[in-house]
Amino acid sequence: RNSFSTLFQEWQEEPEALTTERSFENVFLVPMPKDTVDITLDLRNNRREITSKLTHQVVPTDILIRQIGYRDVTPFETIQQAKDTNNCIHLAYLAEGYRPEEMGTFIQDVKMAMEALFAHEPFKGMRDRFHIVAVKSPSKDSGASEPGKGIWKNTALHSHWDTNYSERYLTTSNLKDMHDLLAGTPYEHILVLVNSERYGGGGILNSYLLSTIHNKWSKPVVVHEFGHSFAGLADEYAYENEEVNMYPLDVEPWEKNITTKVNFKGKWEEMIGKKPGVGLVEGGGYKMKGVYRACNDCRMRTNEIPEFCPACQKALRDLINFYTE
């Protein structure tokens, strides 16, 4: 099961959502069917209740299905080849805000971001299960748009800061453009690198991560956001003045690294008492009370912590095994 869009989920908790209707664009990757099929999307709220439903019929012989990815493929380089290319996880790094003459810088940035990821367990010990390409999508301008400063750039994905009016939140809503740029490229998970020195980023589960790469915090931010986009790990921080009601306290979160203790089984309960520092620490998922994390600190909590906590490592390892075994 895929989330429709965790960005949409976050927006639903914003004050703007009380008075404004918006549409959110998303793309789902499905195998091309051999015969006619119905694809149904259920949209659920944070209580797992269906709020909307859409069924779309796909007829493989439909002449209006656009066949792309066979020509005019965005140039890409293979940065790392998996040990078994038939049974691996495909990561695509995508350029945002790099002009054609800056693609040499982009390739170096991809290598830097890749090494930052593989410095962390469990990625370090399972590195040979990842196949990695760098996709050279060109932009007319360098960087990304900064609405708060009145700066608008013409870039491949039209990404911008100030998402949901949060100064550091850097995302794009142009998902169709993103996947069109990747057509013909081996990819499952998308890591967008933004050619900027400003701090910022965002990670959308089963969709993409997007982060600047020339900031002093870029390496930990890329790793943190990949925890969101790849494995659906929740943010483990909370602020008293910024509490967001994404997690009802009488519903167990589906994220593997936080719990409301409603249905804790299958998360990290077997580590308690066996691994040092692992327990039930209150505060997480943007709530100071009622939501618990496994450890005092973690890569999903603060930039200064170099490693994922044991609960996050378990969730990541389980998912890598799910994809590759």
Rank of each mutant, 00 (worst) to 15 (best):
V58S: 07
S159G: 12
T36D: 12
E10L: 05
R66A: 14
E102K: 00
G285E: 00
I68R: 12
V135A: 07
C88R: 00
I305D: 09
E255D: 12
K136V: 04
A311V: 12
E13H: 11
L209M: 15
G143T: 03
L157E: 08
A294R: 07
A183E: 01
V135D: 08
A92D: 02
V194M: 10
G200E: 00
S211Q: 00
I305G: 09
H228Y: 08
K53H: 10
G143E: 00
Y323H: 05
K287H: 13
P186N: 02
Y169C: 08
K287R: 15
F322L: 09
M178T: 05
D177L: 12
H179L: 03
I204F: 10
I305N: 15
G290T: 03
K274V: 14
E197V: 11
V223Y: 04
K314Y: 04
G203V: 00
W217N: 13
F28E: 13
N45W: 06
Q57G: 06
Y70K: 15
Y323T: 02
L280P: 07
A82M: 08
D42G: 11
V262R: 07
L280C: 13
R299H: 13
R198I: 03
I63A: 13
F24E: 05
T212Y: 01
R198G: 01
D128L: 12
I272T: 11
D128T: 15
T6G: 00
K267G: 07
K149Q: 14
E13M: 13
Y208M: 09
L181C: 06
S159R: 04
E16G: 02
I132A: 09
D72F: 13
H90K: 10
D162T: 07
Y247E: 04
L117P: 07
E21N: 13
I213E: 05
L94F: 11
V281P: 06
N26T: 12
Y239E: 12
A92T: 00
N87G: 09
I151M: 04
S166F: 05
A119D: 11
A116H: 03
G290V: 01
V221D: 08
M114P: 00
I65K: 08
H131E: 01
A183M: 07
A92P: 02
D62Q: 10
H179Y: 10
L91R: 05
A311N: 10
I305E: 15
P31I: 03
V133K: 03
S23Q: 06
D42Q: 13
H228K: 08
A119M: 08
E197S: 15
S173D: 14
I272S: 06
S145I: 00
Q67V: 12
H158L: 14
P122Y: 04
F24D: 04
K287P: 03
V194F: 04
E146D: 15
T55F: 06
C295W: 02
Q57R: 10
S139N: 11
S207P: 00
P100K: 03
V135H: 04
R99C: 13
N154W: 01
